[in-house]
Amino acid sequence: QIDKMSARSSQLQEETAALQQALSQLATSQAMMDKLRAEEKAAFTQNKADMEQGLDGIKIALKVLSEYYAKADKAHSSADGAGGSIIGLLEVVESDFTKGLAEMTATEESSLSAYDTETKENEIEKATKEQDVKYKVKESTELDKTVAETTSDRSGVQAELDAVLEYLQKIEEECIAKAETYEDRKARMVAELAGLKEALRVLNEESTDGALIQTASLRGVRRHSHA
């Protein structure tokens, strides 16, 4: 169970690291988009101002020329042809400027719309991944805590078991020691009896009353042995 929890925690940590890397890349991508959008907006603002200023100048020129050549003064009749050509050229330029300004504005609006759409998608992706990271970190932390507590409990049980085994071993050693002491005592008693028997044999051989001494002594030995 502990191994499974540890493996799951490791997997969650790997997934969290991958998500955090993806979030970092997403942030970098968004920063580049923001920079490009700012540059595009600045360029559009400047170009639009220049185009509008140029267009206003052309309109003023057309108005002045139109009013000038519209006068009934015949003194200008010789220049009517040249004036008409200039006015026609200015009208073409005005049309080009108007068309260019419209296209420029449409491009800016399209770029802004694409930027807003992708930015919102990035925000949703960021929020989703951040929430996923939060849950995975929480689960991994809880698993690590459970593993640590379980390991600690198992260590405590093992320590108690070791203490019990040590106590049992101590008792066993004491019992063996007592058994050895009893055997030693028994061996000494047997040796003492053998010594007494040998002494009686010697005395029996040397004494004229050997039979009496042997009989009395053996009775005493038997009583001592039964005791």
Rank of each mutant, 00 (worst) to 15 (best):
K63Q: 05
M33P: 01
A18D: 15
L161D: 01
H76P: 11
S111L: 04
R8A: 00
E14D: 09
A22T: 08
A27T: 14
A79G: 09
S85F: 11
S111F: 09
K145N: 07
A227P: 03
K186V: 10
R188Q: 10
V137L: 07
R219S: 13
A49P: 00
H226C: 09
A22L: 09
L62N: 04
S111T: 12
A177S: 12
E149Q: 10
S66K: 13
G81I: 05
G156W: 05
A216F: 07
Y69H: 00
D184H: 00
Q158M: 07
E192G: 06
E205W: 07
S6P: 14
S152E: 14
E180L: 08
Y68R: 15
K41T: 03
D3I: 15
R37S: 14
S155Q: 13
I213K: 10
I86E: 03
S9T: 10
Q169G: 03
F97D: 05
S9W: 00
T141W: 03
E123L: 14
A17W: 10
R201E: 13
H226Y: 12
A179Q: 11
E125L: 08
A106R: 09
V147S: 05
Y167L: 04
S225C: 15
E118T: 11
A42Q: 03
L36M: 14
R223G: 00
D34K: 03
A38Q: 08
D56I: 15
T119K: 05
Q214T: 12
V164P: 12
E160Q: 14
D209V: 07
L26H: 01
S9C: 08
V157L: 05
L101N: 01
A227E: 11
S111W: 12
A159I: 07
D162P: 04
L218C: 11
T98N: 01
A163D: 06
N204P: 00
R185P: 01
E166N: 13
E52Q: 15
M189S: 10
V147C: 01
N47L: 09
A227Q: 10
L165Y: 06
E40K: 07
A38E: 02
Y115Q: 03
D116K: 03
V133N: 02
T28P: 01
S207Y: 09
R37F: 04
A70K: 14
Q21C: 07
A79T: 07
L196A: 06
K35L: 14
E130A: 15
